[in-house]
Computed example of a mutant assay.
Amino acid sequence: MDPLDYPSDVTEDEADEETYAVRPYAVTGGRTRTTTNEPLPVEALVQSLRGHDDIGLTPERRKILELTRDQYLSVAELSAHVKLPVGIMRVLISDMSDSGNVRIHGAGAFSSTTAPATSLSVLESVLNGISSL
């Protein structure tokens, strides 16, 4: 962005920080929950469904499709790759699943009475996956 577009008392770095703070909110249209209000586990795997156009999709959604076209990635891994908070990624993936762009593996296996992410082995596995990025 051209520095002339900023007010005189705002530096380019400050403007970038402000844009980042607003952007995730704009990506989901202000929503913080999935359409079903069920939390999507961070370890749930996402698979792109081939044959769907990515025309008209936001850059974040196109990136999710690109990343999961040839491999399964967890919600946490996608969050790191796309550089968006996990909460925002959960909403995006849920919406993409509802529209038939992606398939989520492992999300339906958990109920609200179980807490799979509290298992130490699951947390270590997710942490190892994120660290390998």
Score class of each variant (00 low, 15 high):
residue 30 G to D: 08
residue 51 G to E: 04
residue 46 V to R: 05
residue 128 N to E: 11
residue 53 D to S: 14
residue 4 L to N: 07
residue 57 L to C: 15
residue 37 N to F: 13
residue 66 E to V: 12
residue 107 A to I: 02
residue 52 H to G: 10
residue 68 T to R: 08
residue 44 A to R: 02
residue 121 S to L: 07
residue 85 P to G: 13
residue 43 E to T: 12
residue 97 S to C: 08
residue 84 L to R: 15
residue 66 E to G: 11
residue 128 N to D: 08
residue 75 V to K: 10
residue 79 S to H: 07
residue 38 E to F: 13
residue 6 Y to K: 12
residue 84 L to S: 15
residue 69 R to F: 10
residue 20 Y to C: 06
residue 57 L to S: 13
residue 117 A to C: 04
residue 62 R to L: 08
residue 23 R to C: 12
residue 65 L to K: 11
residue 117 A to W: 00
residue 4 L to T: 02
residue 124 E to W: 10
residue 128 N to R: 15
residue 69 R to H: 13
residue 2 D to H: 07
residue 118 T to Q: 04
residue 49 L to T: 14
residue 120 L to P: 00
residue 90 R to N: 08
residue 19 T to P: 07
residue 121 S to G: 05
residue 125 S to C: 08
residue 40 L to P: 02
residue 63 K to C: 05
residue 65 L to C: 07
residue 2 D to S: 03
residue 133 L to T: 08
residue 40 L to N: 05
residue 32 T to K: 04
residue 18 E to F: 13
residue 13 D to C: 11
residue 18 E to Q: 15
residue 28 T to H: 01
residue 60 E to P: 10
residue 83 K to E: 15
residue 33 R to K: 03
residue 89 M to Y: 08
residue 82 V to S: 10
residue 17 E to F: 09
residue 5 D to N: 07
residue 76 A to Q: 05
residue 16 D to C: 12
residue 7 P to V: 09
residue 93 I to E: 00
residue 33 R to F: 01
residue 133 L to A: 12
residue 4 L to F: 06
residue 6 Y to Q: 09
residue 83 K to Q: 15
residue 47 Q to N: 10
residue 37 N to H: 12
residue 50 R to T: 07
residue 29 G to N: 05
residue 54 D to T: 14
residue 51 G to P: 09
residue 55 I to V: 13
residue 59 P to S: 14
residue 130 I to V: 13
residue 12 E to W: 00
residue 57 L to N: 14
residue 96 M to F: 05
residue 72 Y to T: 01
residue 128 N to H: 09
residue 24 P to F: 09
residue 17 E to L: 11
residue 92 L to R: 03
residue 3 P to S: 04
residue 31 R to M: 07
residue 58 T to Y: 14
residue 114 T to Q: 01
residue 83 K to D: 15
residue 54 D to A: 14
residue 111 S to Y: 00
residue 117 A to T: 07
residue 5 D to S: 12
residue 116 P to Q: 00
residue 16 D to F: 14
residue 95 D to E: 11
residue 75 V to P: 05
residue 57 L to V: 14
residue 11 T to C: 08
residue 77 E to Q: 14
residue 103 R to K: 02
residue 31 R to V: 05
residue 19 T to D: 13
residue 100 G to D: 04
residue 54 D to K: 15
residue 5 D to R: 08
residue 84 L to D: 11
residue 104 I to P: 04
residue 10 V to K: 04
residue 73 L to R: 07
residue 42 V to I: 10
residue 131 S to D: 05
residue 61 R to K: 13
residue 49 L to N: 14
residue 5 D to V: 12
residue 65 L to E: 06
residue 9 D to E: 11
residue 98 D to P: 07
residue 24 P to N: 06
residue 15 A to N: 08
residue 41 P to R: 10
residue 8 S to Q: 04
residue 6 Y to N: 11
residue 2 D to W: 02
residue 62 R to M: 06
